[in-house]
Write a protein that binds this DNA or RNA. Structure first.
Length: 426
RNA sequence: GGAGAGGUGGCAGAGUGGCCGAAUGCGCCGGCUUGCUAAGCCGGUGAGUCCUUUUUGGGCUCCGAGGGUUCGACUCCCUCCCUCUCCGCCA
């Protein structure tokens, strides 16, 4: 969330930012509640100061007088209680609204309403020209016996899949390759819970608002299945005051990711593009409150992902996500889209976000600067590799005319040195 | 799942109704002492929020979280979360 003081001082900037993101927010109401809350706070504090003082006096009074003084004091409690209740109600309403105020997008976030307005900022690699009729990943994988969508649907419903044989191994290879590269760069690998309390969802900005996209356990446990390791990893140090000398923290985590994909009926129904569960290697950076440093980290985590794609010889492009396609928490987001022949275009495979202190405020994630001052951290994250969509790209881009799959060199070590997966089927 | 113990500041640990935002020790910061280091001595050292303000300052809240009892709660009661020990069950 944003700092109330910042909103007070810059209501126009907040309003303009929300407009750029196409997110409705009732700032007038929020500022009015804020004013009321502060007025009540002054009153309540004064009343309580009085009461504290009286209570002290009673303690020091001769025993004979205590009963009388206490009875008097009891009368005054009602007023205090009433004001406190009002304050609590207003504060709760204020907090609810505040959680929904979007972060202010960066200057160079493009104007626009949806992903069609995202701005391409880079393109790498040439989409391959096939000298045969290429198959899409489903046809290719099914021909090899690698993919079983029908049985997965019977097991778990639509948008599920079973990987079998070499494709299952390839998934593991890509994940491990992505993880190892990040570890080599000094990122600390984490294995984290994917079932979290809702505080972590609120803290990272997914709730309120994203409840429909998350699987939730019943009331017995009240836990939520995360859609990304970003949630547990960014929340790892919630409530702590870190030491500046320990920053930045660079984490990488491989986890399962779960997404309900509510409201996407009929969209990307074929194959592995939009599924309920996949594996993902995610990178998270936590550092000091410094927009310049955040920007530098942002560049680095995008580059980290690009390197993975380039190493796998997959053509991609980077887009600067426009205001309307940006989530409430982000200052800026760069998506990386990888070439997918069956789509005849680029499909989103990575998403790199910069939040400034928006998540850190919600998580109460702070650090003590070398100057002794406590401030909220800045957080960032990006995909390194997401399994299902990476498999689409690998299958479709590296297929051979005979239906076998060429394995890019960096993955071979994870596949017992094999250069080819599958057997000729056509 | 059953029984018990416990959650206090960066850490350890006292505190069982007012004298406690919190002893003491360690750590950390500043200073003194000092050939250097160590030791020693002196002082300082939680977070949030509001009011006032050039500064200084003052109020309120926070001892796992939330609620309750009381004039007054770290201390008593209730619910929840977490940790530890024993038993059971399971991998």
């Amino acid at each position: 969330m944003l700092d109330l003081k910042f909103i007070r001082a810059n209501p126009d900037a907040v309003r303009a930012g929300a407009a750029k993101k196409r997110i409705a927010v009732d700032l007038a109401k929020l500022l009015d509640l804020d004013r009321q809350a502060r007025e009540l706070s002054v009153r309540v504090d004064a009343l309580r100061a009085q009461q504290n003082e009286s209570s002290q006096a009673i303690g020091k009074a001769p025993p004979a007088e205590r009963a009388r003084l206490a009875a008097e004091q009891k009368q005054k409690k009602a007023e205090l209680k009433e004001e406190e209740d009002r304050k609590a109600a207003i504060t709760a309403e204020l907090k609810e609204l505040l959680l929904r105020v979007p972060n202010v997008p960066a200057e160079d976030v493009p104007e626009g309403k949806d992903d069609s307005d995202n701005l391409e900022v880079k393109r790498w690699g040439e989409p391959r020209r096939f000298d045969f009729e290429p198959l899409d990943h489903v046809a290719l994988a099914e021909a090899q016996g690698w993919l079983d969508i029908d049985r997965a649907a019977r097991l778990s419903g639509s948008r599920n899949y079973v990987l079998r044989g070499d494709l299952s191994l390839l998934e593991g290879a890509v994940m491990r390759f992505a993880l190892d590269r990040m570890v080599a760069k000094g990122f600390v690998p984490l294995t984290v819970p994917t079932l979290v309390r809702s505080e972590a969802m609120v803290g990272t900005g997914y709730f309120p608002g994203g409840e429909e996209q998350a699987y939730r356990c019943d009331a017995r446990d009240d836990l939520v299945l995360v859609g990304t390791a970003e949630v547990p990893v960014t929340s790892l140090h919630a409530g702590e005051i870190l030491a500046e000398k320990d920053l930045p923290l660079r984490y990488v985590a491989l986890s399962a990711c779960y997404r309900r994909e509510a409201g996407t009926y009929g969209k990307d129904t074929r194959g592995l593009f939009r599924v309920h569960q996949f594996q993902k290697v995610e990178q998270v950076v936590i550092d000091v409150s410094d927009p310049g440093k955040s920007l530098a980290h942002h560049g680095e985590i995008v580059a980290n992902a690009e390197e993975v794609l380039a190493a796998l010889e997959l053509p991609y492009r980077v887009v600067n996500v426009c205001g309307g396609d940006l989530g409430a928490p982000q200052v800026q987001k760069f998506d990386i889209e990888t070439w997918m022949p069956s789509r005849g275009g680029y499909g989103e495979t990575h998403s790199a976000s910069r939040f400034h202190d928006y998540q850190a405020r919600r998580l109460n994630l702070r650090y003590r600067g070398t100057d002794g001052v406590v401030r909220f951290c800045h957080t960032l994250n990006n995909t390194v590799a997401a399994s299902a969509r990476m498999l689409i790209a690998l299958l479709e881009n590296h297929q051979r005319g005979d239906g076998t799959l060429w394995v890019p060199p960096p993955l071979r070590v994870y596949l017992c040195g094999r250069e080819t997966l599958g057997r000729p089927v056509r």
